[in-house]
Amino acid sequence: MKIGGFLLILIGILIAAAPLASAMIAGSIAEANGCQLNEGGVNPCIIDGQDRGPLLSAMFLAGWYMIYTIPLGAPIILVGLILFVVGLFRKKKTS
């Protein structure tokens, strides 16, 4: 059960952190292209001749979804930790 617990931990972390990753990627792209990115509104950001400002703004604002994803991911991580620890003790007990 160690592997199953470990996978649950990874899935929980991915669920909880996905909005943060989206916001960080948007911030990095905007910074690399000299664009302004904030929560106040959509700013133009021309990348390869196209305005990517609305997309970057939506990705940046997706960080607020962590309000929902952290409470979803935390119990998954907790169950994964319990399964991982139980798997460790079972292995020691049988050895």
Results as ranks from 00 to 15, higher is better:
M66W: 03
Q50C: 00
M66P: 00
A30E: 01
L20D: 00
I11S: 03
Y68K: 06
G87V: 06
P54Y: 07
L8H: 01
A30V: 06
V42G: 05
L72Y: 08
D51A: 10
D51G: 09
I3R: 14
A16I: 07
I76R: 04
I11G: 04
S22V: 01
F6A: 13
L88Y: 10
I29T: 08
R90Q: 14
L72C: 12
V86G: 09
G40K: 10
L55Q: 06
A21R: 01
S57N: 09
G5V: 03
F89C: 11
F84S: 02
A21I: 15
S22W: 07
V86L: 14
F6T: 07
L7V: 14
V42C: 05
S95M: 13
K92I: 11
L14P: 05
F60H: 03
S22I: 04
V85F: 13
G87L: 07
K92W: 12
V42P: 02
K92Y: 11
G49D: 10
G80A: 10
I3L: 14
I15G: 06
L20C: 05
S57W: 02
A17P: 02
V85Y: 13
I82Y: 12
T69A: 08
L20A: 11
A18T: 09
I25W: 04
I3F: 13
G34M: 09
R90V: 08
G34C: 10
T69W: 05
Q36S: 13
G27C: 04
L78C: 12
I9C: 11
F60R: 02
D48V: 11
G80E: 05
D48T: 12
L72N: 07
T94P: 04
I77F: 05
L83T: 02
V42Y: 02
G5P: 02
M66D: 01
E31A: 15
A74K: 03
L78Q: 08
M66E: 01
G34R: 09
A62S: 15
G41S: 11
R52G: 03
S28C: 08
G34H: 11
I13K: 04
G41R: 09
S57T: 09
F89V: 14
E39S: 14
G12E: 01
G12I: 02
I70H: 04
A32S: 15
S28W: 06
I82D: 07
G27T: 05
V42T: 12
M66T: 06
Y65K: 01
N38Y: 03
K2N: 09
I70M: 10
C45E: 02
G53T: 07
M1P: 06
G27I: 00
A16T: 08
P19V: 00
A17Y: 04
W64P: 02
L20I: 12
A58E: 15
T94I: 13
I15W: 02
D48N: 15
S28N: 13
Q36V: 12
R52I: 05
C45M: 05
A16S: 14
L7H: 11
A26M: 05
A17N: 01
P71F: 07
F89I: 14
P71I: 07
P75I: 08
A58G: 11
M1K: 09
T94K: 15
C45Y: 05
I25H: 05
G27L: 05
I82T: 11
N43H: 14
L56Q: 01
T94H: 12
G63Q: 04
L20Q: 01
I67M: 14
I13W: 08
I15R: 04
G27H: 06
A74C: 10
R52W: 13
M66F: 06
